[in-house]
């Protein structure tokens, strides 16, 4: 046993074994991605940038029920609504989503009774200014303005 150990030590068996693994991976194909050009597959359930859905007339689907704001652990959603005196329905006046605080937990999406707020599969959300992260309703419907880096 001792002899065997000594021989393997002298012959660098352990190092050769390890190096064989490294050499094997040198001839196998690469697993890395060249990010901005190649993009990995994003699954359907991915919770990314928030978006508010609109109906066929282009009006917001939101019924101002305030459930999303109540179910937000960090309180990043603010819903302001008024009562329409004619129809006696609540009408949305302002909807603010603060992306800086969002945890992307998906509770708002889950609780929404009309599937209005959705967390989409977009994941590139960088901005130059902090105030650009506070999204109003029209920004939420169109999606965040993407800044393209130019050389």
């Amino acid at each position: 046993m001792r002899m065997k150990e000594l021989v393997s030590k002298v012959l660098f068996v352990d190092l050769i074994k390890g190096l064989s693994v490294t050499f094997k991976s040198m001839v196998s194909h690469a697993v890395t991605e060249q990010y901005p050009k190649e993009r990995s597959k994003i699954y359907e359930r991915f919770r990314g940038e928030p978006r508010m859905a609109v109906d066929e007339n282009g009006k917001t689907k939101c019924i101002a029920c305030n459930l999303c704001a109540m179910n937000c652990p960090v309180g990043c959603i603010t819903v302001e609504a008024e009562r329409d005196p004619e129809t006696k329905k609540r009408v949305l006046t302002r909807y603010v989503f603060d992306m800086q605080r969002c945890l992307f937990c998906g509770f708002c999406e889950e609780i929404c009774p009309v599937n209005c707020i959705q967390l989409t599969t977009d994941y590139e959300m960088s901005q130059y200014d902090r105030k650009d992260f506070v999204l109003e309703l029209n920004e939420l419907e169109k999606g965040m303005e993407k800044i393209k880096y130019k050389k």
Partner: peptide, 13 residues
């Protein structure tokens, strides 16, 4: 905050 609002809403109804 949000809960207070909700309370007010239910009173409004």
């Amino acid at each position: 905050m949000a809960e207070e609002k909700n309370k007010n809403d239910s009173l409004e109804k």
